[in-house]
């Protein structure tokens, strides 16, 4: 089971067309594609490039510039752990290292059961309730090892 649709050129073209009337539509298009497919599939780049009348190389440059755009779909849930200074001051790095160690994955990787991808994030604006994280689009603050384990268990069970 996955949250995302498999690659479908027709669907991608629809998404692209829906944004073409906007000024500077590249980022809105890429966000919408990632929402649909979980990533920016390589097959999508020439379609967007053609629609925006730019080269494939330029399009690839845009896609790869931004940390958020993925080359492959993530697991069923994405846990983003904050690695910025405010969370560091509250032990965020230790918390993250211990979780990755127990899951047996590195930053950006997915657990073997396909349930959870753990990504770094540099600040969620929750700097007075550190350490912080975001599970999918739900924010979590004042994390402790126990709370983090609970979140992970919830995501892997779902």
């Amino acid at each position: 089971m996955t949250r995302y649709a498999p690659w479908n050129e027709g669907r991608a073209s629809e998404i692209i067309s829906a944004h073409l009337a906007e000024e500077g539509p590249a980022l809105p298009i890429l966000h919408a594609l990632q929402e649909e497919f979980g990533c920016i599939p390589r097959e999508a780049e020439p379609l967007v490039a053609h629609a925006l009348n730019i080269t494939r190389a330029e399009m690839h440059g845009v896609v790869t510039f931004y940390h958020e755009f993925r080359a492959h779909p993530p697991g069923r849930h994405v846990l983003r752990l904050c690695r910025a200074e405010a969370c560091q001051s509250m032990g965020g790095e230790r918390l993250a290292a211990s979780l990755l160690d127990r899951l047996g994955i590195d930053w950006g990787e997915t657990t073997a059961d396909g349930a959870l991808t753990v990504e770094p994030v540099f600040c969620l604006g929750l700097c007075a309730t550190a350490p912080s994280a975001m599970l999918d689009e739900r924010v979590k603050g004042r994390l402790t090892p126990a709370k983090l384990d609970h979140l992970v268990a919830e995501a892997r069970g779902a």
Binding site: L27, L30, H31
Partner: peptide, 20 residues
């Protein structure tokens, strides 16, 4: 919506990003 780039908080980088 931005896309996870810190430097896009620099005003001219932000303009480039808005332009796609």
């Amino acid at each position: 919506k931005g896309a996870g780039s810190y430097v896009c908080g620099e005003e001219t980088a932000m303009l480039e990003s808005l332009e796609g």
